[in-house]
């Protein structure tokens, strides 16, 4: 399963970005292999309108199963993620590592 966490940088120690559509990066963790990679979302983060849906489209294209973020995506992005069957967990803070551990411990809220 591939988990994407909205972040301001890349890697385990990157600070979580509470925003979904305007997050610069998504750190991607494959929890079966333990592999870590990232999605560069800078083009969408700087868009005028429509940052949310385009980010969601990019997430879907990368075959992500679960998104972890701070405040939760807006209506349009939430619609794309729901349609694609991608789970959304909110309330993440601190570093990517912390967010991932909180998610594993069931501390994050499913939207």
């Amino acid at each position: 399963m591939k988990i994407a966490i909205s972040a301001q940088e890349t890697g385990w120690n990157a600070p979580v970005d509470p925003r979904f559509g305007r997050a610069q990066y998504f750190v991607v963790i494959d929890d079966t292999t333990g592999e870590i990679s990232y999605i560069d979302n800078r083009a969408n983060a700087n868009a005028g309108h429509g940052a949310g849906p385009n980010t969601a489209s990019l997430i879907a294209d990368n075959d992500i199963n679960v998104v972890i973020t701070g405040n939760g995506p807006g209506g349009n992005a939430a619609r794309v993620l729901a349609t694609m069957g991608i789970g959304v967990f909110v309330g993440a803070s601190g570093t990517v590592r912390q967010a991932y551990e909180d998610y594993k411990a069931g501390k994050l809220m499913r939207q």
Binding site: A47, G50, A51, T83
Partner: peptide
């Protein structure tokens, strides 16, 4: 030019507000 229509995998999705 307004990102109001996107392709997400095998679907076209439309965002009327945009």
């Amino acid at each position: 030019n307004f990102n109001a229509i996107i392709q997400a995998k095998n679907q076209i999705m439309i965002f009327p507000q945009l």
